[in-house]
Simulated assay, not measured.
Amino acid sequence: MSNDDGTEDPGMNREDTPISYDFTAHLTHFCRVLRSHGLLISPQETADVMRALSAVDMMDRGRVYWSLRALLLSRRDEIPIYDSLFERFWNFEELPLRPHIDSDDDLVGGAKEFRRTPSMAMMPEDDASAENTLVQMLRTGASSRATASPPDLSVLRADELSELSMIAARMIRAMATRPGRRRKRHPRKGSPDLRGAMRLNLSRGGDAVVLPRKRRAPRTPRLLVLLDVSGSMERHVQLLLQLIFAVTQHTKRVETFVFSTSATRVTRELSAPSFSEALARIGRVARHWSGGTQIGQALAHVNTRHEYALNRYTTVFLLSDGWDTGEPARLSREVQRMRRRVHRVVWLNPLLGSEDYQPLTRSLQAALPHIDHHASARDVESLKRLPALLR
């Protein structure tokens, strides 16, 4: 139909076509926007929101508002931010991410923003041999540079979170206490110890007055996790860190350290009630995140100052790609020192299994003769083999 001036009215002839909109993507983007404004929202909270909204009336604004608020907010001062963004979310308006903020600035409630910073492995190193200060060597592997930047952890998909939960459950079962091969004397239980009875009754003329007993001593498996958080490992560490967090929620037999140019114990931080809170705590204590790599120095720190975590029932998971600026001889010496005191040492390499990859770095060549397993940790599928290594 045409107007009086001869032009066609587009609104009168246009067919009404349904507008398709992916609400899951809209909700995920809403969570990402809230996180960019300083709210501590992890993949677990995002998955919880998906499940919660499937149980409420999506057309009821009040129910959706309070469901999201109960799951996504942890502090009172986050309410104004949430209210303003929820209004745009409910009206399907554009939700822009917050512009980049310097990581040294405090966000809402003093939390630090976990943003990707330039990888230290791709930054110029000081090279004394370069006369021109504008031309410096660019290292693409290991770096000796220390840094004080917070971690950047990418979001895991919902199916990966489900897989990690199942792997964590299998690891917890593998760490259950079970009878060991050694036998220990017990006052009432166990089989008679005839050899011990002869020794104890020699003073009584050899008569079996006292009959001692022995039972199999319980074996309590423990897990020591060493995570390389240097610049070259930044995009790989989040997978295993999420898995170890899930395990730590159900057992206290796990000790966790993160290292680059120095090592930091983060066992207490991983006991937080949520993964997002654990990340915030780790970001406050591990200021060397995304720095250089000194694997031998980190192992020496654990061997010397945390020797309580090393015994014959301990399995060590060391996650690293092998890029190291330290001395290979020191790394070899510290790996041997640790191996003599623990049950098993497993080197988890995220590069193993990639096309044309070979472990040819000097650090790996020095360490491989002294480790029990060199396993891949490049994806969730490769982590499914970890529970078997705990037995």
Rank of each mutant, 00 (worst) to 15 (best):
Leu134Arg: 08
Thr140Leu: 04
Pro187Tyr: 08
Met137Ala: 02
Arg178Gln: 10
Val135Leu: 02
Gly180Pro: 12
Asp207His: 09
Met198Asn: 12
Arg219Asn: 08
Met171His: 03
Ser162Phe: 00
Gln136Asp: 06
Met175Ile: 08
Arg139Met: 09
Pro187Arg: 14
Ser162Cys: 04
Arg145Pro: 05
Arg215Val: 15
Lys189Cys: 10
Thr140His: 03
Pro218Tyr: 12
Thr220Glu: 10
Leu194Thr: 13
Val155Tyr: 00
Ser230Asp: 14
Pro212Asp: 04
Thr133Tyr: 04
Ser144Ile: 09
Arg181Thr: 15
Arg183Asn: 08
Arg178Ser: 12
Ala174Leu: 14
Arg213His: 14
Ala158Asp: 11
Ser143Pro: 13
Ala142Gly: 06
Pro187Trp: 07
Ala169Thr: 00
Leu202Gln: 14
Ala168Asp: 00
Ala146Ile: 06
Arg173Leu: 08
Ser149Pro: 01
Ser203Leu: 15
His186Ala: 12
Gly206Cys: 08
Lys214Val: 15
His186Met: 11
Gly206Asn: 09
Met175Asn: 11
Met171Lys: 06
Pro221Met: 14
Leu156Asn: 04
Gly190His: 12
Ser230Lys: 04
Arg188Gly: 11
Leu227His: 02
Leu134Lys: 08
Ala176Thr: 12
Arg182Cys: 12
Pro150Gly: 07
Gly141Pro: 02
Gly141Asn: 06
Arg145Asp: 05
Gly180Ser: 10
Ser162Ile: 02
Ser149Phe: 03
Asn201Phe: 08
Arg215Glu: 15
Arg178Cys: 09
Asn132Ser: 07
Lys189Ser: 14
Arg204Trp: 03
Glu160Asn: 05
Thr147Pro: 03
Pro150Cys: 06
Ala174Gly: 14
Arg182Ser: 14
Ser149Glu: 00
Met166Leu: 07
Leu194Asp: 11
Gly141Val: 05
Ser144Ala: 09
Arg178Tyr: 06
